[in-house]
Simulated scan of single mutants.
Amino acid sequence: MDWMQFVSALVSALAWPSAVVVVVCLLKNPILGLIPKIRSFKYGELHVDLTEALQSLQEDLPAAPSEPEAQPSKPRVEISIPLQIAAVSPRAGMIAAWLEVESALNVVLTREGEERPDLLPPRKKLDLAFNLGHIDRQQHDAFVRTSRLRNEAIHMLDRDITYEDAVAMVDVCKRLAESLHNPTPPVHGPHF
């Protein structure tokens, strides 16, 4: 093998890897621009879909109670604090909506004699409310799923969260908090 054959073999061996590296370098910015727009992610058994999870929660919860048919003298526009926050930062709006759920859980647990429920982790609060009969199994599951969405909003910073996602989360959290303020009659004894 002379030096020309060696160079030819070397060029032949490095041609495809070099082409791949060049293409990746040229397309790096467009690919990175697409990553935040990903609404769904699947890797092996893990599958995360933010929009689907929020829609599923909205369908599982009962409709918010309607207000009486009284005609107010002037139209009243009420925008909650989480919605105001979501207009600026949808991710922060989702987190603020969850805080209202935790606040409602704290009120219920304080009423039951729990000292400093604000120091308990959210899952512990949910389990206590469930065991005390303030929420049923379906509500408990909805609370847990909503808590997971809140965790994704906090920890998955590369995910794009839209204003519509935040509005859906605010709706779900509002219904969950209202279910704690206006509970269905509790079933006697803890649920297992």
Rank of each mutant, 00 (worst) to 15 (best):
D158R: 09
R145C: 03
I154V: 15
A104R: 02
F130E: 09
P185S: 10
R116V: 09
V144T: 12
A9S: 13
E164Q: 13
Y43F: 13
E115N: 07
A87S: 14
K74L: 12
H188Y: 06
S179L: 14
H47L: 05
G133K: 12
A86S: 10
L34N: 07
A104N: 06
V22P: 00
I79N: 03
V23A: 15
S89T: 12
K42A: 14
W16L: 14
A63M: 11
E59A: 15
E100T: 06
R175Y: 03
P121A: 10
L157Y: 04
I154S: 15
V107G: 01
A168N: 03
S8R: 04
T146W: 00
T162P: 02
Y43T: 07
D165Y: 05
F41Y: 15
N106D: 15
H47F: 06
S56Y: 05
L109D: 00
A168D: 01
P82L: 11
A142C: 15
K124S: 07
A9D: 15
P186D: 03
T146N: 08
H134A: 01
R91C: 08
L180M: 11
R137T: 06
N131D: 11
K28A: 14
S12Y: 07
K74T: 12
K37M: 08
F41L: 15
P68N: 14
V24Y: 13
K37I: 02
G133M: 08
I95D: 07
I85G: 06
P121H: 05
A97N: 05
S179C: 09
D165G: 06
V48Q: 02
T51L: 03
R116P: 00
P36F: 07
Q5Y: 06
L61G: 02
G113Q: 04
D160W: 02
R148D: 10
D160L: 02
E164I: 03
A97L: 04
E45K: 05
P65F: 06
K124F: 00
P62Q: 07
D49P: 08
R150W: 01
G33W: 11
L27F: 13
E152N: 10
L99V: 07
P30V: 04
P17L: 04
P185V: 03
L149T: 05
L109C: 09
E52F: 02
R123C: 00
I81L: 13
V20T: 10
N182G: 00
D165M: 07
L132K: 15
P122Q: 04
H134L: 14
N151W: 01
E59N: 08
